[in-house]
């Protein structure tokens, strides 16, 4: 019994790492640009499918990760430069416009995925064994992926808080006008941010496809999953997101074990709605949002 509980808890925590990486890109983009990128999940899927293609060319998924991240960075930067930059986000209908634009984009991305990779469910076999310690059995690939995901998310966090370019991004997220007054090129920072957010999605996809299979249409639920993490953690709150990712991971794994997979599929959404309604400021947030 204890072993089962520990196994569930650890598995949940490990999944939390993957969720954290999925959510971090979304969080970053929201923080800087106040855009909720509804195509985020689809970028994750494309990152995974890129990894699949590289894997079929005999590239190790971990080696494919930087490549997928780089490609997604380019895609994201181009989208920001070419499309989103032209979007009028100011005014009362601004949020509506960004949501509609990214909503449309999510269909474009997932269906381009369909054209390139087909509709079938695909996965990448990678480290299929397991590690056994004190009777607790954890899949090797989950351990590795989780570690990489945590490392990636933390690296970006350090970049944001410790380096000049990262600080420029954070400054922009706090006040675009102020940052512009300090001589920062807001446009460049937005391109960088959107690109980086997409790169994190791509990296998350690379890891996730070794854990669970993808098909071109898997993006929508992933977007909600990622959004749940940042809503739970408080928008733009990176420490909160870490905690939230782990909570979500544990909740999902436990629900699946106790109530079956049907309930686990719903638990993300239920958790999401409960948080939004009863704790709209997130776990660690203080002020109510307007």
């Amino acid at each position: 019994m204890l072993v089962t509980i520990l196994t569930l808890a650890l598995t949940g925590v490990l999944w939390g790492g993957v969720y954290l990486l999925m959510a971090s890109g979304l969080n970053l983009i929201y923080g800087v640009m106040k855009i909720v990128n509804l195509a985020h999940g689809d970028f994750i899927v494309v990152g995974g499918l890129l990894t699949l293609t590289l894997f079929e060319l005999h590239v190790n998924p971990l080696a494919a990760l930087p490549a997928a991240a780089l490609v997604m960075f380019a895609v994201g930067a181009l989208i920001q430069r070419g499309i989103l930059e032209r979007l009028v986000t100011a005014g009362p209908a601004g949020e509506l416009r960004t949501l509609l634009a990214t909503f449309g984009m999510s269909y474009v991305v997932s269906n381009v995925g369909l054209l390139l990779w087909g509709a079938q469910v695909q996965s990448v076999p990678f480290l299929e064994g397991s590690v056994d310690a004190f009777g607790i059995r954890l899949p090797e690939n989950l351990l590795v992926c989780s570690a990489v995901a945590f490392a990636f998310a933390i690296a970006v966090h350090i970049w944001l808080t410790r380096t000049m370019s990262g600080k420029a991004v954070r400054a922009t997220s706090q006040s675009a006008v102020g940052a512009a007054a300090c001589g920062l090129s807001i446009r460049r920072i937005r391109v960088l941010t959107f690109g980086l957010g997409c790169a994190m999605a791509g990296a998350a996809g690379s890891l996730t496809i070794t854990l669970i299979p993808f098909q071109n249409s898997s993006g929508g639920p992933l977007t909600v999953q990622a959004f749940t993490v940042i809503a739970l953690g408080g928008l733009g709150n990176y420490v909160g997101a870490f905690l939230a990712a782990v909570i979500l991971g544990v909740a999902e794994v436990t629900t699946s074990f106790v109530f079956g997979s049907n309930a686990a599929a719903a638990v993300v959404y239920i958790l999401f709605i409960l948080i939004l309604v009863f704790r709209p400021q997130g776990l660690l947030g203080r002020s109510a949002r307007v």
Partner: peptide, 12 residues
């Protein structure tokens, strides 16, 4: 029984 959207079969 599990729903069609299930991807992680670990707990099961």
């Amino acid at each position: 029984a599990y729903p069609p959207a299930t991807t992680d079969f670990g707990p099961l």
